[in-house]
Amino acid sequence: MSRFKKNEKKEVPGINTGSMSDIIFMFLFFFMVITTIREATLFVKINAPSATEVQKLERKNLVSYIYIGTPMRTQVYGTEPRIQLNDQFATVEDIAEFIEKERAARNENDRQFLTTSFKIDKDVKMGIVTDVKQELRKVGAFKINYSTKRGSVVD
């Protein structure tokens, strides 16, 4: 029966890669939407503590970050916890100026909503954190957020 005879000349067709770029672009857009670009290069090691009663930080553009942790290059900077503002190490005295700069960079109406997010390593002692908090109280930046992971507090 010639009707079911195999076509001898038939080759395996090449895989069409034209739509592959579309798929990858889709991935790309997905990642671009759900992620945030890192704000600063971290010089300090930060392993945030866990908490259960966490809230999402709204309005990312109105958040300034203060990082406190042990320096990554301990042979250069020692093992004492240090404060990092933007892309450099800082001291407690620099906080006021930092907040002023952050305020100046924002729209006047939005300044009152400016939040300071603490990204602090869980092994840092409260002394340095308290100093930073006192400094923030002096300049009137009262809204703060302790950055944490979601998880149980008791391990």
Binding site: E53, K56, L57, A141, F142, R150
Partner: peptide, 25 residues
């Protein structure tokens, strides 16, 4: 587009900022 994708994967972090909000006195 793969190149772009890898670039974004490396430069971004998925972590949404979570934390305990407080108001200083």
């Amino acid at each position: 587009s793969f190149l772009l994708l890898t670039f974004f994967l490396l430069t971004s972090s998925i972590d949404t900022d979570l934390g305990l909000s407080r108001r200083l006195p």
